[in-house]
Write a protein that binds this DNA or RNA. Structure first.
Lengths: 231, 231
DNA sequence: GGCGATTGTCACAAAACCGTAACAGAATCG
DNA sequence: CGATTCTGTTACGGTTTTGTGACAATCGCC
């Protein structure tokens, strides 16, 4: 599983370190772009916003600190999470690094594991849960925060995929979705799976809903796909 | 209505006052760290976010006001509750202190009682889980003040980490937390540990709860994390 | 009713996920 | 300090979950 895969821009002037980091991040499943100075970085960012910025404090020309400050001034780039890379001798500067709003920082030398751990933590923090509001339709209640489903008061156990499937359907009722659309929405658009997989999971979901007679909620639309009916 | 236990960072340049406060706070059951200036304070915060910051208005170098402002600009430190200590009694300064986001202020000289009272109030407001109110769920009772756990009247012994873990779960029941979230909440946000570490501590916690049959309270949510269920 | 397309169901192998024990290092305490 | 507890990590085995192909059942249409 790699839901934590991200586009990461590494700004680091030392080629050896830059490569070391890039290799590590790619190995962890991320897409990596590299820049040796602030100006190249800016150009990359102009084309596409990265999900995360790894920024060396010491850069030729515009310093990492100034670069970060500039990013924070622009509405388009303000929200990019930034992790600062600093050498241990630059202790005093950390205060300044945090001042401009870096999300975290790592002191060199650092282990690959620490790097990955901090990246995960920052990405996680920046991605608030989609919607944690409970949904209820026809006596069937799904609570994302508690990760629970109740059918007329009785607890219903679902596997992770069935849970996501039901969650999606309940938040998008009265509308037909093709199997391909469901695969995109529930499994993620970069998963290549058979259409029939949806059938099977619908079957499993219905089976789980049967004890409380909620299985009829999920309707088959022949030739099109599935729909969760509200009326 | 009991006192609280929290990690408190005291930033005060006068050693005598610093020590006085520290002794008081420890006596009230808090963990205390001290710093003489903003830079040392920042380094301490770098390692772990305190639950509360006691910040002297007058500091050598960076003033308390500026320091607080910096903390508020950083995503990571923004949420730290701050209580300002000031010798000045002018209304103007208090207003300035509150404007930059201090949660409260105390004018010197102040009594230990007043200090404790304000700390309690701020912690209540900002970090509900840091209170020392006892929690009880399904016959399992955790008393932070006494640092004790009872299962149906019988005393249960827990290690420090298991205690914090249980405390967090009991104050946030019926909600799933990923391993990463638990690491953030129970271990601290700047700790980089393996996800599996959580598993092991959950296991130890369950083992400790087993004699009173409370181990079932902690439920595994496959693919998501853990939940303490009250149903 | 006959026929092709579509869907339901089942079983199975692979993968993901979790519990557990063991271990070494760190922290704590006399 | 030495002993003891506490912690984090790893490895491994068991279990659940998942995707898929096969085949029966069903539907729409002529």
């Amino acid at each position: 599983m790699e839901p934590m895969s991200a586009n990461i821009l590494v700004v680091e002037d030392e080629p050896a370190i830059q490569e070391l980091i890039a290799v590590n991040l790619r190995h962890a499943g991320h897409r990596v772009q590299s820049a040796g100075d602030a100006e190249s970085a800016m150009m990359i960012i102009r084309d596409a916003l990265p999900d995360l910025l790894l920024l060396d404090w010491m850069l030729p020309g515009l310093s990492g600190l100034d670069f970060a400050r500039r990013l924070r001034q622009d509405a388009r780039t303000r929200a990019i999470p930034i992790i600062m890379l600093t050498a241990r001798s630059e202790e005093r500067d950390k205060v300044a690094g945090l001042e401009i709003g870096a999300d975290d920082y790592i002191t060199k030398p650092f282990s690959p594991r620490e790097l990955n751990s901090r990246i995960k933590a920052v990405l996680r923090r920046r991605t608030p849960h989609a919607t944690e509001d409970a949904v209820e339709i026809a006596g069937l209640r799904l609570d994302p925060a508690a990760h629970r489903v109740f059918g007329g008061g009785h607890s219903i156990t679902l596997g992770p995929t069935e849970f996501r499937l039901l969650h999606f359907l309940m938040t998008h009722p009265n509308r037909v979705y093709t199997r391909a659309q469901l695969l995109d929405q529930v499994w993620g658009d970069h998963a290549f799976l058979e259409d029939r997989t949806v059938d099977v999971h619908v079957r499993r979901l219905r089976a789980a809903l049967e004890p409380t007679a909620h299985d009829g909620l999920i309707e088959t639309v022949r030739g099109s796909g599935y729909r969760l009916g509200g009326e």
